[in-house]
Write a protein that binds this DNA or RNA. Sequence first.
DNA 1: GCCTAATCGAGACGGTACGTCACGTCTTCAC
DNA 2: GTGAAGACGTGACGTACCGTCTCGATTAGGC
Lengths: 184, 184, 184, 184
Amino acid sequence: MRAHTGRRRNDAARRAILEAAAKLLACADPVTIDAIAAEAGVGRQTIYRWWPSKGAVLLEAMSELARQAAPRPDTGSLEGDLTAFLTATFRAAGTEPNTAVLRTAMAEALRDEHAAELLREFTAGRREELSAVLAPWVPAAELDLAVDQAFGVLWYRLLLGHAPVDRSTARSLAALLVRQLQSA
Amino acid sequence: MRAHTGRRRNDAARRAILEAAAKLLACADPVTIDAIAAEAGVGRQTIYRWWPSKGAVLLEAMSELARQAAPRPDTGSLEGDLTAFLTATFRAAGTEPNTAVLRTAMAEALRDEHAAELLREFTAGRREELSAVLAPWVPAAELDLAVDQAFGVLWYRLLLGHAPVDRSTARSLAALLVRQLQSA
Amino acid sequence: MRAHTGRRRNDAARRAILEAAAKLLACADPVTIDAIAAEAGVGRQTIYRWWPSKGAVLLEAMSELARQAAPRPDTGSLEGDLTAFLTATFRAAGTEPNTAVLRTAMAEALRDEHAAELLREFTAGRREELSAVLAPWVPAAELDLAVDQAFGVLWYRLLLGHAPVDRSTARSLAALLVRQLQSA
Amino acid sequence: MRAHTGRRRNDAARRAILEAAAKLLACADPVTIDAIAAEAGVGRQTIYRWWPSKGAVLLEAMSELARQAAPRPDTGSLEGDLTAFLTATFRAAGTEPNTAVLRTAMAEALRDEHAAELLREFTAGRREELSAVLAPWVPAAELDLAVDQAFGVLWYRLLLGHAPVDRSTARSLAALLVRQLQSA
DNA sequence: GCCTAATCGAGACGGTACGTCACGTCTTCAC
DNA sequence: GTGAAGACGTGACGTACCGTCTCGATTAGGC
C-alpha cells in the first residue's frame, strides 16, 4: 500500500473558496453553492470534497473573518475591561457587512447541522474570551449567565433588528452588568 | 357600489392552514407549502391567496400558538414578579415542541422579510409584557436594555443550544437582574 | 309544478361572451376562460351555465363568425362553380384573423370533446356546401373523397403553414379536381 | 482550450425519455412532463435541459416512431407506386396507436412553436417521400399540390374523424389522383 | 304587491401541470 | 488523486388555469 498517490490538495482553491464565501456572505442575500464555486473559479465538487455542506463553508469563512476581532483588554478594573471588550465586539458586530455575515451564518446554522456545530464552536470561543475578561472579578457561579447576557443582547438585537448594536449600547450594558456583578 | 361581491373567505380553511402549520412547525424538520396544504386539506393557491410567503404563515401560526402564554404576575415585589414571568417564559420556550417552533420561526424570519416583520411584532409584544412587569421598579432609561438582556439570554441559548433554557436559569437570571436594577 | 319561474337568460351576456370569444380567438394566443369572462364583463359561472366547456364557447363563436362565408355559385360549369367556391373559401380561410381562428378552433377540438363535436358539425356543414356544388357533375361514389381532397388541402396547409392558402392555390386545385372528376 | 469538459450527456436517459414519450403518446390522453419523467425514470430537469418544451419531446418521439414507415415503391407504374405508398401510409396512420400519436402531435404543435417546427420538419420529410414517388410521372408544377391533396385527406380525416383513414380510402384516392394527373 | 326562484357579476375553493432553482452526487478528461 | 466542468435525480417553489362553489344583488313570472 502506498501512503498517498496523486495530486495534492490545492490550497489556493481552498482559500479562493473561503474568500468567495466571505464575499457572498457579506451581500445579505442567500448564498448558493453555485455562486461560491463560480466566484472562486472552482468546481462544485471541490467544495463538497472538503466540506460536508454549504453551511460548513459559510461558517468556516465567517470564523476566519472574525478571528482577529477579540482584544484581551487589561485596564485594571472590571468596568474598564468589560467596556473595552463589549465596545469592540458590539462595534464590530453592528457594522456592515459583519451584521449580514452573522445573520446569514445563523440562518445557515438553523438549517444545517454542520453549520450549527461550527457556529457553536465559534460562539463558544467568543464566550471564552469574555469569560477570561470577567473571571478575575466575578464568582464562577455567575460567569456563564453574565456572559450569555452580554452575547444574548448582541444576537437578540442583531437578529431582530429592533434596536441598535452599537458602542453606546455596549457601554450601557457594561455598566449594568458591572452593577449586577459587583453588588453581590 | 357594493361593499363586497363574490364568495367570502372560508374561515375553516384559514384555521385549518394555521393549525396544519402549527403542527408541522412542531416537527422540527423543514416545513413545505405542499405539506401545509396537504395537512390542511387545502389547495396550495389558497395559502398564497392570503399569505405573502411560507414564512408569513408559519409566523402567524406561531403567534397564535404563543398568544396565551404570558402571565401578568403581581407578587408585590420586583424579584417576585420577575421570577414569575421569567420562570413561566423560560419553561414554555424551553419545552418541546415550543423550542422547535421558535427555532424554525427564526430560521424563516432570517430568509423571508414578511416572516421577519411578523417575528418582530411577536417579540415586540413579548417585550412589552416584560416591560410592564418591570416598569414600576425600574428607571425608564434602563428598561429596554434590561428586557433585551432577559430575552437575549432566552433566544441566545435557544438558538445555539449550548446551555439550557429552564426554570433554574430563569431564577438565576431574575436574581441577577434584580441586583443590577436595584443597585442603582 | 310551474313551468318556469325566476330571471330569464340574459341574451346580452350570451352575445357579449361570443363576441369576446371571437375577439380573443383572433389573437392567435391561447384563450382562457378568465380572459373571455373579463372581456365580456361577465362572471365565469355565466359561461359554464350555458356552455359545457371552454372549447364549446370558442367553437360556437367561430361557427357564428363563419356563418356568412359560403356562396352557392352557379356559373353553369363544374370548373366555374368549383373555382368560385374554392376561391372564396380559401381567401376567407387564408386571411387573418380567420387563419388564427381556425387554428385555435382545431387546437381546442383536439383537447375537448365538446369542441370536437362542434368542429365536426361545422366542417360537416362546409362539406355539404361543397357537395351541393359538385353533386350535379360528380358521381356520388366519388363525391366524399373529392370534397375531402379540397378541404384537406385547406386544413393541411392552414395547420402546418408550409404553403399558402390563397386564391391561386384555390384555382390550381379547382383545375386539378376538375380534370380528375371529368376524366372518368 | 479543451473541446469539452464535464460529464457527457447520458444517452440512455435520452432514449428512455423518448421511449417514455412515445409510450404515453400512444395512450390518447394528455401527456405531462412529470409522467414522461416518471416513466423514463429521469428527473424533470433532465428533460428541460435538452428539449425546449414538452411539445418538442413529443414531436421528436413521434418522428422516431414514424421513421421506418416509408416504403419507396417501384412497381413500374404511377398507379402502382402511388397505391402502394398511400396504402401503406394510410394503413399506418389509421391504426391505433398511431392515430392518437399523430393527433396529439398536432395538438401539441398548435400550442407550442418548438413542436410546430418539428412537425413541419416531419411532414416535410413525408412530402418529400411522396414527391419522389410521383416525380417521374408528374409535371413539377403540379407536384406540390398533388402531394398536399394526398396528405390533406389523411390529416383532415385523422383530425376530424368523420371518415375512415384506411386502405380502401387510400386506393380510391390513388385512383382519383392518377386520373387527375394523367389526364393532362 | 309580495313570493319564489333562476340569473347575474364577483371571487374564493381544491386541484393539476407548469417551468425554474438549488441541492448534493456522479462522470469525464486534463493535469 | 485532485481539479474544473457539467449532467444527473430530487424535490420545493410560485404561477396559471381549470371547473365548481358560494355570495348578495337583480329580475321576472305566479299568486
